[in-house]
Design a protein around this nucleic acid. Structure first.
Lengths: 300, 300
DNA sequence: AAACATCGATCCATTATAGGTATCAGTTGA
DNA sequence: TCAACTGATACCTATAATGGATCGATGTTT
């Protein structure tokens, strides 16, 4: 196979059509340049130049090869430049995990922010529940996870990203949906309630269980589901009430009223970013800092 | 800049993740391979591999560079292969000249045939009158010309390609267009006639002049034009009769009848292919042989 | 736990390759 | 015909790449 030096020399001669000046441009003398071109021609088995008298002309083969040579040289230069940007994190691939519910709150801001401020970074998005994400973080399948707490401390680091309130989801015709009515947790006692699944949405399940326990309330669970939008569909169908994160407002479903509820104070729903402490993917560092920066400005 | 050898070595190590086996694949021993990779890393200013203990892993930068390296190597191999096909004429560029009137007869068959049987050959098509084509052939601007005879013999070779008849173009309502009427050259005597331009369509002008002179006929020239379809437009408008090559049938104009004419015998319109005798464009040879082959099967 | 095997890095002598100077041979233009 | 110019060649030198021997570190086995 030919060398890039030969290609560079060939392009120089092809552009000047003069060995002496081409050699000057390449910071060398003419004789070794002549030999380089000869070697390239022998290597290819093709004449690239017609040396007629003291004039040099490209052959048809040389003409055709010139384009390829330029392309190869350009690609090489480009590759050398872009690989240098990888360790700075400007270029690379980050596998980002997220929970279904975080897709409604922070995911779009994060994806958009990365796209805008780290355009060289490819994101690989993978939805899965927190527990699975933690496993994949440890195995290296994921670089960064958007998970629900807690994050067990074995080799993983984490940082809170976002907190949000829980709102009551009430079908439009329901008495609790009346404009002058302020719902209270106690109103849920004995009421039909669409609950999160303890398996696939354990975090929400446990948050709600602790809310109900603290208030001494016992709703009547009519279903256990994991996806917020499925829960809301059942609420709208009148099968029961539910508690959903505020981000559900963005879903904009008709026929449902979302209301803060007395006794469900503050922002009990937490989302944290987690990553492997010794992950050496440089793009991860850039992405992590950007995500934390976005969180500091209260993304939502 | 790095060398292609370095890229090849890098790809081998990246694919085997084992210096010893990579060196074997590259038909060399392990120590120089180690140094090659080190040199490549120093050249790029980037670590490509993590040597952890005795295991080798790609860094993020190495991962990114691997794709570029494969692309550059593939392109290089491709370029080496295709440049070898140029001297055989399978690949290349041929500048093909043609006269406006030949566009109606053989050009599409030629272009189509080249596209089908020499798919690697790019055609550059340039329309101009025969005289200009001959100049451009001599200067090397054209490789092959489709011209009207004669071809003066200074450095150009040529070959007849195609002959065709001249038909009378008669407006539909004209007495000569009657189905039972067989037009005769003498019918043109004193008649309004749309003539070719002696400047831009000299060949047709001279063919017609010699036809008229041989028959002792003197039509009344109402216009001198160069393009066949313009002439036919004037005929249809009733401004006069005309004589056009048979290929004009392909234009399919309504309101005009094309008829053979007694006294205009045979196929007086000739088209020849011409080329520079010492043109060293290999694709030209392939194209020339194809064109002549097509002509032998009476293209039209 | 200790001996062993494996693997990449390093050292050194050797070889191969590329570069430079001087010169040649062919062409061009005065 | 001669002088200038251009690419090719010959020859020497310097640089770089190669291969063998070996080192040091790391797992593995007994």
């Amino acid at each position: 196979m030919f060398t890039l030096n030969q290609l560079e020399s060939f392009v120089a001669v092809a552009e000047t059509l003069h060995y002496g000046r081409a050699a000057e441009r390449l910071s060398m003398t003419q004789p070794p340049l002549s030999r380089r071109i000869q070697l390239l021609e022998r290597e290819l088995g093709v004449e690239l130049f017609d040396r007629i008298g003291r004039s040099v002309r490209l052959t048809a083969a040389g003409q055709a090869f010139l384009g390829d040579a330029r392309r190869i040289l350009g690609l090489s230069e480009q590759a050398a430049l872009s690989v240098r940007r990888v360790p700075a994190g400007e270029i690379g691939t980050v596998a980002l995990g997220f929970t279904a519910s975080s897709a409604h709150s922070v995911l779009d801001a994060i994806v958009g922010g990365i796209h805008a401020r780290l355009p060289g970074v490819d994101l690989v998005l993978r939805e899965s529940v927190s527990g699975t994400q933690l496993e994949k973080l440890r195995s290296g399948e994921l670089d960064l996870g958007l998970v629900r707490p807690p994050v067990p401390g074995t080799g993983l680091e984490h940082r809170p990203l976002h907190r949000e309130a829980l709102l009551a989801a009430i079908p439009a015709g329901h008495p609790l949906a009346a404009p002058d009515r302020v719902p209270h947790v106690r109103d849920l006692d004995g009421e039909p309630f669409v609950m999160y699944s303890p398996a696939e949405a354990r975090y929400f399940y446990e948050v709600l269980v602790s809310v109900f326990r603290g208030a001494g309330v016992v709703p009547r669970y009519v279903h256990h589901l994991s996806q917020v939008h499925t829960i809301l569909a059942l609420v709208r169908a009148g099968l029961g009430l539910a508690l959903v994160p505020r981000a559900a407002e963005a879903l904009g479903l008709d026929g449902i009223v979302l209301r803060p509820m007395i006794g469900v104070e503050g922002e009990p729903v937490e989302l944290v970013a987690a990553w492997r402490a010794n992950d050496d993917n440089p793009a991860l560092h850039a992405v992590r800092h950007l995500v934390i920066d976005l969180a500091g400005r209260d993304i939502s």
